[in-house]
Design a protein around this nucleic acid. Structure first.
Length: 590
RNA sequence: GCUGGUAUAGCUCAGUCGGUAGAGCAGCUCAUUCGUAAUGAGCAGGCCGCGGGUUCGAGUCCCAUUACCAGCUCCA
């Protein structure tokens, strides 16, 4: 929390500038499109936006014209003045702006109703703003998209114009360059270029094909995760990918998650209807229910590398980050109330270890995802149950000293979550990992254990992932490392580059020796190309090590090593290189 | 699902006013056997996303559809 106050002051000045930029945008739109209706236009992390209700959405040409008009307004150096009005007069002033009237009517009694006026433009606004339009020197309009009024899909879709603004032109240009850089790191572009994955029109949306290199990385991650989970007392299950609707009716999915499921069959016509699983919970519960359990069986930690299917709406898919079929490092832990805190901590420690090893820990933030009491139909359970579950979770989080923000309405339908959030290269935040406490499903499924006192009780259940969903994690790793994976993760760890054909025999000898030492992700480039050409290609493929083999190396029984990161490392005995790379792989160096 | 945009060779892109398809890179063949980021020459490569329509004629115009991109909604 330290330092945040000073940060927020700096941010406020920038936000004020951007907020004023949004007003200048609205003024320009009103001048060029008088029939446009105003709604809201706040500053955001990366700039600002303003939502308009217009007959036809703005085209790129419209944006260019609007931007030109904005520059004029800046040049006019209009004074930005605040004034206040009583409610009646405020409504009269805004009589042609239905959205503003809606906003005014919602202001509580006694609230100040303030306006900001600059030249021919006046907007309902709490402020603050810069004093003159000329202060807004460095700005750019970026895009026009659709956005629902008040973020509700049942409302009308408005036209949102995004822009950004900075104090100086240099800062603006730097920001625009960063946006360009981000495009190059985008997993969806880089992942295809590096042949990690592809998609096919015939297979469909949200169903990526992992190519050999991408599948290799996921295999490495999966082995790492499963081994680490086993070390920490988790037991692997393999449960079916589909089940009868009966299972989901019991779990609550049928009532609360059916939209998100692929249902096989027709309830009207077929005797039995199946559905592909969107979550693993009810399946692993059946493993728990295999026989009667006692407190001696607890905690029971069940993990599974679990493929899930979710019928996401068509506009929601994105590369490997949002897909319809994915595989997750899933797990469910059944324990007694006394064990809950320690077990939760254990789950968190596993996650932290994973994220630290992958190098993603510095990029994540925590979110305590709670239910929305105003939206009861989204959830199972009673208010008492929710309050109890959230209190329990809050206590644990506070004991752990975690810094977190609260997400109202972000809970699962069966319980609150600790979500570990990460931003992609474009700044869009997604959940990477989740740890949840569930007091409701055990009861629904009749999961019990016999306690010391001989009484039957429902266990607490922790739902968790340890590395999250493999596809999404891979996406974040591609962006984190710009495709240059640490050697332990690299799909091809080294390339052997013989200079001429007469070096081939020795090259195969070196390959064999490496393989005998467990270094097996090797390629040989035996094409009759010049060394520089082979090196360039290997470098562009982001292979960690390039091993050059020529006369000098054969003479000395050595290899010439070039690292992706540091360039030419000179000649070294084969054994020395093996020792070096093994050490790097074994310690999972970044 | 909603709003907008895009779709031409494996990739990046050009293609004028509607007149029958073009480049660079990659690929293949040949020559070259080379020491730390591109050797040269030649060849081949296209149902212009898919389906309709308008037209004498459609890569180009219209409609529909699929996929991709940005955003909204939703979500791991």
């Amino acid at each position: 929390m330290k330092g945040r106050r000073t940060m927020s002051v700096e941010m406020n000045e920038l936000q004020t500038l951007r907020h004023s930029a949004a007003h200048i945008l609205a003024q320009a739109v009103k001048r060029l499109f008088p029939e446009a209706k105003l709604t809201i236009g706040p500053p955001i992390d990366t700039g600002f936006y303003y939502d308009f209700d217009v007959e036809t959405p703005f085209s790129r040409e419209d944006l260019d014209a609007i931007e030109k008009e904005m520059k004029k307004i800046v040049k006019e150096n209009l004074k930005i003045e605040r004034f206040e009005l009583p409610r009646e007069e405020a409504l009269e002033l805004m009589k042609d702006e239905p959205y503003k009237i809606e906003l005014i009517n919602e202001l509580p009694e006694g609230e100040t109703i303030s306006f900001y006026k600059q030249g021919d433009f006046t907007d309902l606004c709490a402020g603050p703003h810069v004093r003159y339009t000329s202060k807004v020197k460095a700005f750019k309009l970026l895009s026009a998209t659709g956005a629902y009024w008040r973020g509700d899909e049942h409302n009308k879709m408005l036209t949102r114009v995004y822009g950004t603004a900075f104090f100086t032109k240099d800062e603006l240009n730097e920001h625009l360059e960063k946006l360009e850089e981000a495009k190059k790191r985008d997993h969806n572009k880089l992942g295809r270029e590096l042949e990690l994955f592809t998609t096919s029109d015939l297979i469909g949306q949200g169903l990526p094909i992992l190519l050999p290199k991408g599948a290799r990385i996921i295999q490495i991650l999966q082995r790492f995760v499963e081994d680490e989970e086993q070390k920490r007392g988790w037991q692997l299950t393999k449960t079916p990918l589909m089940a009868k609707s009966d299972l989901y009716k019991l779990s609550g999915h049928w009532d609360h998650y059916k939209e998100g499921m692929f249902v096989l069959g027709d309830e009207e016509k077929d005797k039995e209807v199946f559905a592909l699983r969107p979550m693993t919970c009810p399946f692993q519960y059946q493993a728990y229910l295999n026989r009667g359990r006692s407190y001696r069986d607890l905690p029971m930690r069940l993990n599974e590398t679990s493929t899930l299917f979710r019928n996401e709406a068509s506009g929601e898919m994105h590369g490997l980050i949002r897909v319809r079929q994915f595989t997750i490092s899933e797990g469910h832990l059944m324990c007694t109330p006394e064990q809950l805190e320690d077990e939760f901590k254990g789950c968190l420690e596993l996650v932290q270890y994973m994220l630290q090893t992958l190098g993603l820990y510095e990029d994540v933030s925590f979110r305590f995802s709670q239910w929305d009491p105003d939206n009861r139909e989204k959830y199972i359970g009673t208010e008492e149950q929710w309050n109890e579950a959230q209190d329990t979770m809050k206590k644990i989080l506070d004991h752990l000293g975690l810094e977190y923000k609260i997400g109202i309405g972000e809970a699962a339908f069966y319980g609150p979550k600790l979500d570990i959030q990460i931003k992609n290269v474009h700044g869009k935040e997604d959940t990477l990992i989740t740890i949840q406490i569930d007091q409701m499903l055990a009861e629904k499924f009749g999961m019990e254990y016999v306690d010391r006192d001989g009484k039957k009780k429902n266990p607490y259940i922790i739902h968790r992932t340890s590395i999250g969903c493999y596809e999404r994690t891979l996406a974040l790793l591609i962006e984190k490392y710009a495709g240059a994976f640490p050697t332990w993760l690299a799909p091809v760890q080294l390339k052997l580059l013989p200079i001429a054909d007469r070096h081939l025999d020795y090259t195969y000898e070196v390959k064999k020796k490496l393989e005998e030492n467990g270094i097996i992700r090797i390629e040989i480039d035996d094409r009759s190309e010049k060394l520089g050409f082979k090196l360039r290609e290997a470098q562009l493929e982001k292979v960690p090590y390039m091993i050059v083999i020529g006369d000098k190396d054969i003479e000395k029984g050595a290899v010439s090593v070039r690292s992706r990161k540091n360039g030419d490392m000179g000649s070294m005995p084969v054994d020395d290189f093996i020792k070096m790379i093994k050490e790097e792989i074994d310690t999972k160096q970044r």
